[in-house]
Amino acid sequence: MIDISDIPGVSSGTPPSFAELFAAHHPSMVRLAGLLGADDPEDIAQEAFARLHARRARLRDDGAAVAYVRSIVCNLTRNRLRHLRLARLRRPEPPPDAHSGEHHALVAERHRELLAAVDRLPRRQREAVVLRYWLDLSEREIADAMGVSPGSVKTHTSRGLAALGRALGEES
């Protein structure tokens, strides 16, 4: 992840503007939404930053701003997936793939089995795994993003890893 202090022209004593925060973190928020399974990661990220824009004055610091956006991305993706599941239950036709064919072509063949297993994880386990192993967040940060206790983060992560291990073992 890009740290705010990495942004050119932004010293540690100068709070970054919304534009600077956006420039530094928007790409990673799009990717986070995508890794969590959002069908439109860009839309999720934009909505999360729009909400940050509206609430920024109330946040205590810029670290809180990034954590806030991250939690909104998790929430919006969760809600979107729930909506899609409902929509699929009500519609006989198969839902569109979460990822395009082009997307799959871009992902190396050797990751395919593992990523398919990630896609099959229960929602909480998938969130915990992505936040831990892609963003390298601490248990506390993951708990904040997911809106759960740090203890349950550990549970979700370990269960997710175990499920992935089983899936790979079965497929190999």
């Binding site: 928007h26 799009v30 990717r31 990661p41 934009q46 729009a50 909400r51 992902v107 990751h111």
Partner: peptide, 28 residues
């Protein structure tokens, strides 16, 4: 290790919109 590599590989396939900032500001 494999999980980190796989997530990194997939993350790299998500592009961002060229007008993302303008759209977000408009939405905000």
């Amino acid at each position: 290790e494999r999980l980190r590599a796989a997530l990194d590989a997939r993350a790299g396939t998500y592009g961002t919109a060229p007008d993302a900032y303008a759209r977000t500001v408009s939405r905000a």
